[in-house]
Design a binder for these strands. Sequence first.
DNA 1: TCGATCCTGTAG
DNA 2: CTACAGGATCGA
Length: 270
Amino acid sequence: MPELPEVEAVCRKLRRDAVGETIVMVRVERPAVTRPQVPTQLAVESTGAQILAVERRGKNILLRLSNQRTLRVHLRMTGNLVVIPDIRFRPALVRAWFELGSGKGLVFEDPRVLGKIHVYATADVGSLEGDVGVEPLSEAFTPALFRTLAAKSRQPSKLFLMDQRKVAGLGNIYAAEALFRARVHPEKPMQRLRTPVVDRLYEAIDGVLREAVESAASAYQMPGVASEGEWFPVKVYGREGEPCAVCGRRIKRIAQGGRSTYFCPGCQRK
DNA sequence: TCGATCCTGTAG
DNA sequence: CTACAGGATCGA
């Protein structure tokens, strides 16, 4: 599920459901999801603490605790972090869970076990900076900054957009959608884009993410699992072979960095 | 900068 | 059975 819009939706629900709760008990079913990978550490460092606030940095969820600790949760490909009404009735594939003072449960589900829960001293979370670039929905993300980042990078545009150290939060879907909207070829080196095109890409990122946050937030209020593309009208992602809504040419799929990239060969030229 | 790797589930 | 999955990291 999780690119920036979905992670943001998860955060909003946690602010509603988890902030103010106290962690009564912690259970780690799969130590692989914890960092440090000592299964007891998460419990030792978070039991008894109150959840004070929920923040988001890129795709990272930060749970601020009352004991000077912060839990950094990364959902990776298939993770989810939700509050359930009764900790006794846990969904399948829960890899770690927290019993809350109210009897509710905060559960980390993750079929592929790729996600991570990392315990930090709150003072050390600043070490995230450096690995996580500018927040694309913040005021810090300006056309000027984006031009500067672009000018410094020879990466293909798609890989650049997915590089969390540059702009934090885009993943495989929204990177492809932003490139389509801006009519940029996914293999085009960033450095070689003309300034008006860089600016167009900037606007596309902003627009795609704002629209997706909007609809993800409402989709996530609904019970049940909304799935890929159900709430966001994807134009190219996953649409190999289908006609482009703009020009009618068939959407192509190529591989970049071991991932699939979808694009329209008519609208997005090199 | 590329490929392998972490894991498991699901679609074809 | 194989291919592939909305992510990131590590070593070559």
